[in-house]
């Protein structure tokens, strides 16, 4: 029996962002954009979606005079990611 894949995570960029945040303690918008090879607009929309679902927390700060957006995975997001990977495994068996 195949488990249902979380539609929020079953998107290339959102999955890449979540995978990065699982690995990292925190990452800012610029790092995520460069590492996930995404455009600023697309990343911004996907981060909004993940944040609305409570999968990530987004903190807006300043570094000197430059605005900085820091993202961190939440326990809800970590749990969703683990469930997603478990579901993936059921497809690959």
């Amino acid at each position: 029996m195949f488990k249902k894949l979380d539609p929020l995570l079953h998107s290339e960029l959102r999955l890449a962002v979540m995978s990065l945040l699982v690995e990292l303690e925190e990452a800012d918008f610029v790092y995520l954009r460069e590492t996930a090879n995404a455009t600023a607009g697309n990343l911004s929309v996907q981060l909004d979606k993940l944040s609305e679902a409570g999968y990530i927390s987004v903190e807006k700060t300043f570094e000197g005079k430059k605005p900085r957006t820091i993202c961190r995975i939440t326990p809800v997001g970590l749990n969703a990611f683990e469930n997603y990977v478990d579901a993936l495994k059921s497809y690959l068996k």
């Binding site: 894949l5 998107s11 290339e12 995978s19 699982v22 497809y91």
Partner: peptide, 22 residues
């Protein structure tokens, strides 16, 4: 366009995305 839903990713592709990012 920006949301670029890619729900047609195969499980193999999903695993590849995860392992590439990490």
């Amino acid at each position: 366009y920006l949301e670029m839903e890619t729900n047609e990713m195969t499980p193999e592709q999903s695993l590849q995305v995860i392992s590439d990012a990490i």
